[in-house]
């Protein structure tokens, strides 16, 4: 195979990757060729963006429709005090560009909806779900699974995090949770609070999984969900098996996300 085309600055910048047998110049070139969409530039998205940018992921899309609030800064580490009031995608993009000029940032200041999801996701090699609500999570699962786009799932609650990877080879998120909880049953960070460093741990695992996917090394979390408890400092591993009755990845899948109402339970309509 022809040697990857890394310039002298890149050979220097990525030297600690390049000298690793399991990454090497080929692995680094794969990262530089990669395009990743990060949905959510918040608590999870921040470390994801930081490490993907540092690792040299060549194209990084960032989708978010919120502006930075001061209460975000306790955990959303790509934004600074002077960014309060700015769109999150702007300060996140600035952070990435400052960290690594190799990364081309694509800014999507929009909510992910059934209408926008195809335009957002299509063209990316991998998606990181760093969003903060069930409708977006179910929509991303359904769209990515049906379209065959691998993605990382990470979610947090107070001291606990759930993280896994769906490559399309194994189960999907709905195999584990067919429907979302009723509204308010599992409250969000704004309601319950969240330990600021928690998304750092979970987001960093998501970034790890993303980098491993492109370098093609190790074992992915496909088929396993890690449940992390920062208070107990424990990592549990839950096996996730494909559900043949799953309406997204099972034997009789739906045709498109148009068959799902992405509000409240996010239930798939019966045939």
């Amino acid at each position: 195979m022809a040697g990857p085309d890394l310039d002298p600055e890149q050979l220097d910048r990525y030297s600690r990757h390049i000298i690793m047998d399991d990454v090497g110049p080929e692995g680094q070139a794969a990262l530089l060729d990669a395009s990743v969409l990060v949905v959510g530039a918040g608590g999870l998205g921040s470390p994801v963006l930081q490490y993907l940018a540092a690792a040299g992921v060549g194209t990084i899309g960032v989708a978010d429709h919120d502006v930075v609030e001061r209460s975000n800064l306790q955990r959303q580490v790509v934004h600074g005090d002077s960014d309060v009031g700015r769109p999150k995608v702007e300060s996140a993009a600035e952070f990435v560009r400052e960290l690594n000029p190799d990364a081309t940032v694509e800014v999507h200041e929009t909510a992910v909806s059934p209408e926008t999801v195809a335009d957002l996701v299509d063209g990316y090699d991998f998606v990181v779900d760093a969003s903060d609500n069930f409708p977006t999570r179910f929509l991303l699962n359904d769209y990515c699974t049906l379209a065959g786009v691998p993605f990382s799932h990470g979610a947090i609650y107070r001291f606990e995090g759930q993280v896994t990877t769906f490559t399309g080879e194994g189960p999907c998120y709905r195999c584990l949770f067919p429907e979302a909880p009723p509204e308010g049953a599992v409250p969000d960070c704004a309601t319950t609070g969240v330990l600021g460093v928690l998304p750092g741990t979970i987001g960093t695992i998501q970034a790890t999984e993303t980098v491993k996917y492109f370098v093609d090394v190790g074992e992915s979390l496909d088929g396993r969900m890690v449940v992390y408890d920062a208070a107990e400092m424990s990592f549990e591993e839950v096996t996730v098996r494909p559900n043949p009755d799953c309406r997204i990845c099972g034997d009789d899948p739906i045709d498109s996300v148009a068959d799902v109402e992405y509000s409240e339970s996010c239930a798939v309509r019966a045939d």
Binding site: A155, C189, P199
Partner: peptide
């Protein structure tokens, strides 16, 4: 999906877990 549901017989030392999805980000 893999055993006998609520009828699944437990063995000594088995662990059971109950969890909801979480959504924060």
């Amino acid at each position: 999906s893999e055993e006998d549901g609520f009828e699944t017989v437990l063995e000594d030392g088995d662990e059971l877990a109950l969890f909801p999805p979480v959504s924060g980000g």
